[in-house]
Amino acid sequence: MDKALLEINELECVRGDKQLFSDLSFSLQAGSLLHVHGPNGSGKTTLLRAIAGLVLPENGEICWNGETTGKQKDDFNRELLYLGHHYGLKFELTGYENLKVFANLSGADINEHEVEAALTKFGLAHCVELPVKVLSQGQKRRVALARLLLQRSKLWILDEPFVALDAAAVELLLGVIKAHVADGGMVILTTHQEVAIDAGQLQHLHLGQQPLDRQQAGSMPSASVTEPH
């Protein structure tokens, strides 16, 4: 078995004074996909943001390659691509300009052809030179997703990536995710939509559950990891 690249140890996150989850530990190796389940308010987004380094956990640590992510921020960020609820796009800029800024900051030099190819793959060939504000919700989401193809990041963290996408685009994105995982990448995602995700080594994480066999320790929010194989 491969060495785990991403390790979460005894993670605890709070929102306000409310504890979302605690003692959460799991690990992820190259070529695997983690599907995070849980009802609204169970802390899915907080977990993803904590792994991405946007939320400071109350306790516990997140390790990449055996070292805490906080201590190697730049190296970790190079391997990371997080797409959240917001598109993360400037509406006044064109799709090309938007993607170019992030590529520049990531140290990757990309040219117009690559951007065009990525946008074309997501069915937006004609939108390269249009300001993002004239695009529809689904198209905006696709521009944001085009970053998946442009930045060669290893770890993708996708919070509800299927929202606003039509059936064809969902299929397309699933294909992209599968290809990434098959290529040795890692994906962590949440979704409320019924999509058939099955790629590489599939893991499920259930947040905010109350397992029946655990009645001790009061009303501690809990989490469980399953690996069906």
Partner: peptide, 12 residues
Amino acid sequence: DGTLEQLMMVPQ
């Protein structure tokens, strides 16, 4: 618009 959080995750 969420670009700030993206800027916080670039390797710079």
